[in-house]
């Protein structure tokens, strides 16, 4: 018997993002659809940034996780439209990012507060950071630099 889609979503929610392992690929909002096509499971994945090197690793990790659950035929479909948006980050994912020290994205274009000391006295260092999806900010109170997950 083929596992139900709901169960597969649960399995995928246990696959960590390779760059930010505290959140899952489902939290990140890049798994768009899971469908059976005969005996092949088709998983639609939307890349975050065009050149993000994590994308191919994520596809491999998803395949491996599903193989481990006994699904032999997995097809990863790259779906670029509609383009990925940080609106698809789950609430659970946002909370985990904050705990991990990465300020979650906000429509206002900057972090709410410093993920360490919670001060709102923060300034931007650069629009770009250690991965394509992050920017570098600094807390003017605790003086620690921190990552902000860019809103796109």
């Amino acid at each position: 018997m083929k596992p139900a889609a709901e169960e597969i979503w649960d399995w995928l929610d246990a696959v960590p993002d390779p760059e930010i392992p505290v959140i899952s690929v489902v939290d990140l909002g890049i798994v768009r659809e899971v469908n059976w096509d005969g005996d092949t499971l088709e998983v639609a994945v939307t890349p975050t940034y065009s050149g993000c090197p994590a994308t191919s690793v994520i596809s491999m990790d998803i395949e491996t996780a599903l193989h481990d659950r006994g699904i032999r035929d997995v097809r990863i479909k790259t779906q670029i439209s509609p383009p990925w948006t940080t609106d698809w980050l789950s609430e659970k994912g946002r909370a985990k990012l904050m705990d991990y020290g990465i300020a979650p994205p906000r429509a206002a274009g900057g972090p709410d507060c410093c993920p360490r000391c919670k001060s709102t006295n923060v300034t931007r260092i650069s629009q770009f950071g250690s991965t394509p999806c992050k920017a570098q900010w600094r807390c003017a109170d605790c003086l620690e630099p921190f990552d902000y997950f860019k809103c796109i």
Partner: peptide, 18 residues
């Protein structure tokens, strides 16, 4: 910071190229 920004910009552009 500029090194990182340049590398990220290059990465986006190469991704778009693909």
């Amino acid at each position: 910071e500029e090194d990182i920004a340049l590398a990220n910009t290059a990465l986006d552009l190469i991704g778009q190229t693909q």
